[in-house]
């Protein structure tokens, strides 16, 4: 258990305690996902349709964080 408790979430921003003003509003962030069918990386914006652009599959998986 001690190992689990000691686990720290990796964080890119370091001390992010200064409040938050939302992500870039104009284009929106691109978070990539994995297509459930062809395993292609799918960049998805906020209003994008949920489907793989290369094969049209309708289930996407969230990628494991590598940071």
């Amino acid at each position: 258990m001690s190992q689990r408790e000691a686990y720290q979430f990796p964080s890119s921003s370091g001390g992010a305690g200064t409040g938050y003003a939302g992500y870039d509003t104009a284009t929106g962030p691109k978070v990539t996902y994995i297509c459930g069918e062809c395993s292609a990386k799918v960049p998805l914006e906020k209003e994008d349709k949920v489907r793989c652009p290369s094969c049209g599959h309708r289930v996407l998986y969230k990628e494991r964080t590598k940071r």
Partner: peptide, 27 residues
């Protein structure tokens, strides 16, 4: 997150990524 929301607590940012969903493997 709402575009203009300025009071997102920092501990939320710790868990939730910019798409509004948590990280894989988060406790």
């Amino acid at each position: 997150f709402a575009d203009t929301d300025t009071n997102v607590p920092s501990d939320v940012l710790f868990h939730i990524e910019e798409d509004g969903l948590p990280k894989i493997g988060a406790r």
